[in-house]
């Protein structure tokens, strides 16, 4: 397997990790919003920020894969 193929697998693994993370954030945010609809705005903005943090790690993976590929 070439280094490009391994890099692609690495990017895929990073995407799986980020998917799990963002899924958990989204799920918990939905639950919280359903329980306390009046906090909708605050929960939404904190969920977006947290999703950005998780996503950044996946994007590091993508960038490394790009550099290798």
């Amino acid at each position: 397997m070439t280094i490009t193929g391994i890099a692609a697998i690495g990017a895929g693994l990073a995407a799986i990790g980020a998917g799990v993370g963002i899924g958990k954030i989204g799920g918990s945010a939905m639950e919280a919003m359903a329980r306390q609809p009046e906090m909708h705005g605050k929960i939404q903005s904190s969920a977006l920020i947290l999703a950005a943090f998780v996503e950044a790690v996946a994007l590091f993976g993508v960038v490394v894969a790009f550099l290798q590929g």
């Binding site: 950005a52 996503e55 950044a56 994007l59 590091f60 993508v62 960038v63």
Partner: peptide
């Protein structure tokens, strides 16, 4: 650095 890569990678992707 994460600020830099987040914006760059999101828009390019």
């Amino acid at each position: 650095i994460s600020l830099m890569i987040r914006l760059f990678a999101n828009i390019t992707a």
